[in-house]
Design a protein around this nucleic acid. Structure first.
Length: 171
DNA sequence: AAGACGCCCAACCGCAGGATG
DNA sequence: ACATCCTGCGGTTGGGCGTCT
């Protein structure tokens, strides 16, 4: 959708990385007025950003309780468990990981876990011709929670991305 | 030492659904 | 009941940075 914008100042909308000044303006404004109604917030605060952009910046970066970096093995397990249950419902998964954002979890999944899955997939593809059941022995190569990736099973009923998630799980 | 390559993360885009007039 | 607006979500992309050759 994204219906036609309702004001005439769109030519001035800024895009790209946020500056420190913009961050400060947003933080101060929210500290004084609270969150909500992002479009008018953006305008009232004098930010030449869309409400969407302000919301994203606040939720993913500026919020005081946001934790960044260093996803723990425990968190990783939770992510995998919930992803197995719900599929790509990142915001839902994020609600179970206090301080983590859907964007972060999504990035984490794409960059780390999917990579490990591919590796595990290839690896199992190679060994499956010879032996099926002793791949536990190989999990020692993949330390900590990552080994759980190999035993990961996709949700039985992905709401909409059954075919999108075309990985085959060799377990 | 320099260029090529790959990874990671912040931010944008488009869509869907809910709220409101 | 309908049209419009706003918010939230998931997918995708571009750029910075580190590592490799």
């Amino acid at each position: 959708m994204d219906k036609k914008p309702c004001n005439s100042q769109d030519a001035e909308v800024r895009k790209g990385p946020w500056t420190m000044e913009e961050d400060l303006i947003l933080i101060n404004y929210i500290a004084n007025h609270g969150e909500g109604v992002w479009n008018s917030l953006a305008r009232s605060a004098g930010l030449k950003r869309t409400g969407k952009s302000c919301r994203l910046r606040w939720l993913n970066y500026l919020r005081p309780d946001v934790r960044r970096g260093n996803i723990t093995p425990e968190e990783q397990l939770v992510i995998m468990e919930l992803h197995a249950k719900w599929g790509n419902r990142w915001s839902k998964i994020a609600k179970h990981l206090p301080g983590r954002t859907d964007n972060e979890i999504k990035n984490y999944w794409r960059t780390r876990i999917q990579k490990h899955m591919k590796q595990a997939e290839n690896f199992n593809g190679q060994i499956s011709s010879s032996e099926h059941n002793d791949h536990q022995a190989n999990t020692s190569q993949i330390s900590g929670a990552v080994e759980a990736v190999e035993s990961y099973s996709p949700p039985l009923s992905y709401p909409e991305n059954l075919e999108g998630n075309s990985m085959s799980f060799p377990c």
